[in-house]
Design a protein around this nucleic acid. Sequence first.
DNA 1: ATTTTCGTGTAAGTTTTTCTGAAGACAAAA
DNA 2: TTTTGTCTTCAGAAAAACTTACACGAAAAT
Lengths: 312, 312
Amino acid sequence: MKNLPPLNALKVFEAAARHLSFTKAAEELHVTPGAVSQQIKALEDYIGGRLFRRTKRALLLTDAAQASLPILREAFDKLEEASRILTARGDSKRLTISVAPSLAAKWLVPRLDRFHERMPEIEVWISADMEVVDFAVDDVDLAIRYGAGRYLGLETELLMEESILPVCSPRLLQGAHPLRSPHDLAHHPLLHDGSPDQDDMANTNWAMWLKAAGVSEIDAKRGAKFNQSSLVIEAAVAGKGVALAKQTIALADLEAGRLVAPFDLTTPSNFSYYLVHPASKSRNAAVKAFKKWLHEEAATGSVNSAAQIAAQ
Amino acid sequence: MKNLPPLNALKVFEAAARHLSFTKAAEELHVTPGAVSQQIKALEDYIGGRLFRRTKRALLLTDAAQASLPILREAFDKLEEASRILTARGDSKRLTISVAPSLAAKWLVPRLDRFHERMPEIEVWISADMEVVDFAVDDVDLAIRYGAGRYLGLETELLMEESILPVCSPRLLQGAHPLRSPHDLAHHPLLHDGSPDQDDMANTNWAMWLKAAGVSEIDAKRGAKFNQSSLVIEAAVAGKGVALAKQTIALADLEAGRLVAPFDLTTPSNFSYYLVHPASKSRNAAVKAFKKWLHEEAATGSVNSAAQIAAQ
DNA sequence: ATTTTCGTGTAAGTTTTTCTGAAGACAAAA
DNA sequence: TTTTGTCTTCAGAAAAACTTACACGAAAAT
């Protein structure tokens, strides 16, 4: 019965008309300018006329295009509204995220208010669990996992890489045995990260680190061991010794000055943080929005809003 | 900036919700029920909830889906309106069709009012010309050509096949030498279709026809020759002899009783009618509508509106 | 109570559409 | 003039949509 125009072409046209620039529209839509050009051409073929007057100076809308624009905007506004209604009901605005407790405490939670600012209508539930979740059983929409990136039957994408570095309270830089070189570690307890997800490959334990640093006289087994990365950090903040910490987990305390990195020797981890979810969740609008935000946070690095704002 | 839902899925949902049936929606959209089911599922994944309650008895809308529906309808109405505005300007509502004069006179023009009824906003211009059009030069949107279907660089699709049969005025069935068998043709002038697009392969000229009918004693060269198929028909209607006519061109006069087919011997032509246009026109809404209508007319066969209505 | 019919759901594979990447054309800015 | 920015075009790649084929359950028919 109906005779609807090509919808995606209209969407592209609306963006191009708003910016009066194919390039800008392409950016907004996250496609190449060529794709925009082709969609506009398709719509022009469909209507049998031009939408833009391509003058030497600039891009101008034809009268018909100009006239259609307000109506088009209304239409898209209504589509968005309809989408909002559909998305808002039931449990759909609750997003359940499964994260390891340390990453949750030291990385995700400190940033979460920024996501809430952006999408106040999405309620985020953090499920911090040492166990690996079963998407089929638990009602989890998205998991952030630290590992090698192989999760069969699930869609996986890299969120950020991890690296390892020694950190300690700034107080340890002064005092009887100030930390100046790796050899000074002899005078301080070592704090070990024994979290179960610990990368058992090279360079994430003190033995490996000391070897890489060329220090042989220190017993790598010395000191306390913690089963969560965040606890290692807490111990270091309390001045209990020098922790070999995950950079990501230590970041907030480093920025706050509660921790310092005494040596300029950071080694990459073989493990990284991955976003993992079942294929069906990949189309979910809330999951998409949260993933996008996570990627932005990971790219920004800092926990500080200021840095976040400056980066934009 | 914007966060639009998947537009095609919304379109499918609107149709499915309106019919409360995936199958009906599939018919309306000219796709299979499976395609509808998948689009609905995609939208359900996107919103993270269900759109339909699948009860044992029937398909019911969820509250959210129900609530979104009126807004969705408004949105699509506005999109249609925008499309109308875009299509209505300039020369876009004028469709120029290139047709051979005989087909124009005897087939297309008698039916054209039915297209006008359906799409009153599209103004159809008939360009009846013996010459084959050059789409680049003439401002032609669509051509109907009689031939073998090979037109390089242009999109081509079969409209209908042609067949050849002898026709004459009903008066020739009575009188001194009534036409009862092909042998009776000896007493009547033969009318020849010498139009330049004439199929030069077998069975479209009297010599071939007579041979096929097993008549050897008649001189196939006898009688008048016309350079347009429609003129042959006119001569036959006027009782000037027996024409070997294209079925399509003769149809209107046969239905009106001005012509009769004295023998039950119709032979297919090697040529057919093809719709031809440049690739860019294939997306044009007006061209699409006209092509669709042409196909329906070709399938219906009859010129009569009554038959047309009955067939629906 | 079976069997048939009808409609939805799912999987695999194909077709169509859309997009990218690379190059070209053209005009404005340097 | 060269450089830069923007639109356009093309072939090929990627993604989306669709078809075909079949499974399943409920309603209708036998």
